[in-house]
Design a protein around this nucleic acid. Structure first.
Lengths: 195, 195
DNA sequence: CGTCGAATTGATGTCATTCAACTACAGTGG
DNA sequence: CCACTGTAGTTGAATGACATCAATTCGACG
């Protein structure tokens, strides 16, 4: 019944129709409202989430109460706390809907079973992992080397679609700056581009 | 002949002695001097490196010519550019010895063959990957949320042994600050602790 | 002993934060 | 329909954290 997810698993994940149908026990599709919380800090993450429609974010809250956004997950993205799932540890972060969304809850068993069932899925899964590493690694690099402005420019070229959908203060949080600073960065850029 | 590595693969990596011996074609042990470069930006990474003794680092160089240290690899650590190996892409970074070192060159075939040979090794390998993600993720978090001082404190409790071996300007580079700033941070900490 | 890179220190500059005020707007309840 | 409220975004002024530049010291090593 999760049509998008099913297609995704079959076309990109390397599962056959029959394999997929053996795994549906570990899946649930849910419609949730904006602000729904899927995972809280301290909980052990039991599911990955696949976004069929809508938009999720994952974020931490530091000792001083500030939020730091780890990742946005729009349509056809996965989000979860891999470490929490894999090592069975309490999660460091939160996962929340920032739009009304339709989300597939993928129980951790799904991945295990799918991996046993299909070597092509296993490869796909490793590819996801590797991609994830590449992605986070780039982010570390940016944070180490780039100014707020160039991080923002990088953001808009990586996620042009999100610009319109994500409130500005969340983008600031993703970039590691304050909303005020982002506002000023944008002002600067605007003045540069129109003269 | 790489005794430490062999032990490591058998005790932690889940390989049997016989399995390991089938794979030695993909291994070479080399002694290299300080400043030896294992990988340059733009090259495709063909090996993982296992440090038997000594100390390596991986780092990027940004457009303005500044180095940013990604990782230190002391004894019994692995270092490589996973993304470059996995996706067959030019590497973003450099790998270099910062002490005279003995290093096992692990050709990318090793991992592939070992994974086919042993499901226990496969699990071990995934664990390495997951650990890697956890580790980088924590770093992103620190960079987003913590001051230079607390990043330094975090560093010394994570890698107390490296403190003595790594020149200070490299630690600064790892933390994403200038050597001058790190010097001042240390001065501050010293004055706090002795009064 | 002289040289070179690492580390420290001081003076100054820059970028981003903080705090506060203000605008704009969407949602709520009277 | 309008006032009330709360949140997002912008702007300004002051502050703070870290960078930059330059000078000096320190220690390792040839």
């Amino acid at each position: 019944m999760p049509a998008t997810f099913k297609n995704y698993m079959i076309h990109k994940g390397g599962l056959t129709l029959q394999e997929f149908d053996q795994l549906t026990d570990s899946l649930q599709v849910k419609k949730v409202n904006k602000d729904h919380i899927f995972l809280r800090e301290g909980e052990i993450c039991e599911h990955s989430f696949f976004v069929e429609s809508g938009l999720l974010r994952s974020f931490t809250i530091d000792e001083s109460g500030k939020e730091h956004i780890i990742q946005f997950a729009p349509e056809n993205w996965f989000v979860s706390d891999r470490s929490s799932i894999f090592f069975n540890e309490p999660s460091d972060f939160f996962i929340e809907a920032i739009e009304d969304s339709t989300v597939v809850f993928i129980h951790k068993d799904f991945m295990i079973k799918a991996t046993e069932l299909s070597s092509r899925f296993m490869e796909y899964n490793e590819k996801l992992l590797q991609n994830n590493i590449r992605h986070i690694q780039k982010r570390v690099n940016l944070l180490l080397s780039a100014s707020a402005e160039s991080r923002y420019l990088n953001f808009i070229q990586l996620y042009p679609d999100l610009l319109l959908r994500v409130p500005q203060w969340m983008i600031a949080s993703y970039l590691g700056i304050t909303p005020e600073s982002l506002s000023r960065v944008r002002k600067d850029l605007a003045s540069k581009n129109f003269k």
